[in-house]
Design a protein around this nucleic acid. Structure first.
Lengths: 217, 217
DNA sequence: TCAAACTTGTTATTATTGTAACATAGACTC
DNA sequence: GAGTCTATGTTACAATAATAACAAGTTTGA
């Protein structure tokens, strides 16, 4: 099974499938078809079947997919079975909200440290997460062996902070700043650009006002 | 010029270009090349030239692009020259952060109303935005003629609230809930799935962890 | 048990997106 | 002002992604 050749587009959909399977499982459902899934997650059923097929034959013809076993499979594939510690850098407006955010609804992610320069919050615990001063960031990240960071600092210091993160071996950055940060090939950046999302929405509404489908996220 | 045939992928990049042009303009720069832009926004220079070319010949061979005129062009194209009112539905953790968020750094977006069911905040003004009760949502959206909504309600009421939004003519929804909401073809949904982004990042790190296959973005 | 009804997994096809290459218009040098 | 250099706009190509179509197992019901 060549799981190292999963297309990017497919990989991005996996967590969506996983979440819905979880929902089905909680609801006590035993089987599900690609058509049913398609309707729920708004992805074409053929695309779903194709996505699944990269991992082998997970379903049964004429029957569909067994919810529990599919769930179990994805749980493992998506590393939902082990805890991943992440850090949050920049406890401003958005950063603070993310400390409270239910990333852990999936139970496999925990924000175990936060960093900021504001003296009034450093040394305190915010939403259950200890906030350290940025001066201690490199040390703490090393000690705690954290490889994934949520970056919510002001744009003007984004690159500078990123360089520090790279220095201590951070491998993945969830970048909420509007800046496209520069990193080595060994580091993966996932951009979440809120302004961009909204502007794109506005652009499409104005240009194509009425028609056109809506897909993608 | 056929601006109605702009590829989706291109449209999503336009705000990124715009923002960087704004930065260049503020820095007093007069000209910029596609290569320089490419480096800053992490998009291949050929892709940038191609993106621009959909709008006609915006640059000069052997020179590059004039920052001010390009900025002016995009300002118009992206409707940055007129104010768009949006509403925020669901003033929880994330919703509250977004009320403070600098969407308006670009000056063309204003959150002019927020809605929630929590009695302790309805009727108050949060971060400069009046918070109404959900019971008044349909009326206010109609009166204020708001067509774009930021949806930050709990997943379990997402579809129900969406239906109401659709009823009063909302045309665009920036969906922060993990649910893939169902809407008519006339409504555009842009999903911002924070858990998904993080999980995808974790997936890629674990699969291609060390330094295997490098680029995917 | 058999046939009709399902639904997968896969193959073939089409659409979209990205990248490379380069002829050419224009800028710049001396 | 002639020649060199630069960087666009575009064309050709390659890679990725989505969709359609269907043969082949399974289930289901009579």
């Amino acid at each position: 099974m060549a799981t190292s050749k999963i297309p990017h587009a497919t990989a991005k959909r996996l967590p969506i499938y996983y979440r819905y399977l979880h929902f089905l499982s909680d609801a006590g459902k035993q089987r599900v078809s690609s058509t049913e899934l398609a309707d729920a997650v708004k992805v074409d059923s053929a695309t779903i079947r194709r996505d699944f097929s990269y991992f082998g034959a997970l379903g049964k013809r004429g029957y569909g997919y067994d919810v529990e076993s599919l769930l179990a499979f994805f749980k493992k594939t998506l590393n939902q079975d082990k805890l991943t510690n992440v850090a949050l850098v920049g406890v401003g407006n958005l950063g603070h909200a993310l400390l409270n955010y239910n990333f852990h609804q999936s139970n496999n992610v925990r924000i175990s440290a936060a960093f900021d320069i504001k003296e009034d919050i450093t040394g305190t615990i915010q939403s259950g997460v200890p906030v350290y001063h940025m001066n201690d960031m490199k040390e703490q990240l090393s000690v705690q062996q954290i490889e994934i960071v949520i970056l919510t600092v002001p744009a003007k210091v984004a690159q500078e902070v990123t360089n520090e993160l790279v220095e201590v071996g951070v491998k993945g950055i969830l970048n909420f700043t509007p800046l496209r940060i520069t990193v080595p090939d060994t580091v993966r950046v996932q951009n979440v650009d809120l302004t961009n999302e909204l502007q794109t929405l506005i652009y499409f509404l104005d240009k194509f006002g009425k028609q056109d489908e809506n897909k993608l996220g």
